[in-house]
Amino acid sequence: MTTSVNNNSGGDQPQGSGNAQLARRRFLQKLGLMGAVAASYTLLEVQAKTAASSDKRWGLFIDTSKCSSGCDACVRGCNEEHGIDAGKDEHTRAQWIRKIDLTDNLTGAESSVPVMCQHCDSAPCVDVCPTGASFKRADGVVLVNKHTCIGCRYCMMACPYKARSFIHENLTDQKPSAPRGKGTVESCTLCVHRIDSDQNQQPACAVSCTDEAHSAIVFGDLNDPDSDISKKLKTVGGSQIRADLSLNTGVRYHGL
């Protein structure tokens, strides 16, 4: 059990903060070459304003003592948010988040947990992706860039959490904020489209859980010691699934 959450160490990750700075600097250099000072000001403001920053590390805290076995509000909330059809075959449809019921082998204690992408700091899916489509954002969110994903599924082989889904068939009526399509791999995005636009927003699963009056899922910035999630982790503690792999996950469970 551990509550320490390191930020991404950068270096080997393509989207570290240093890299973002570097890209920005290069970008400005090129602009300078063009002598387009006016334009560079416009774009600089735009870039500096809203890019994901490594000052933050988004994560989830899941209190299993508050999670109830019969409830799948988080799953339904996620499916609704991303236009996932839950009516299809469970092995070929997308499963961004799923509920698992557990019984302790020694004590017989029962628990129920939602499992989704754990947003690892050292994500195996990012390491194995041949094209770099599987990547980690500066703020720790692990995503698939579906524009460069070739659908090889090596990330799914590598994921210890069975958290990724391959789209097996043609999709229609996608949501504007959740582009999804046949032949690429996808997984929980921590609802980046929500948290990017407004930092007070919560991922759909957390909202649904709160609406159900369980409040078992807390979303927040693991780097900020004053955030709700950091305080929770500090006071009640939280462990990682497969902590033995030393992946430093962004999703932590209390009561596992």
Partner: peptide, 9 residues
């Protein structure tokens, strides 16, 4: 250390 009693996947 646990036995899985139910899962949708």
């Amino acid at each position: 250390d646990k036995t899985i009693t139910a899962s949708t996947f």
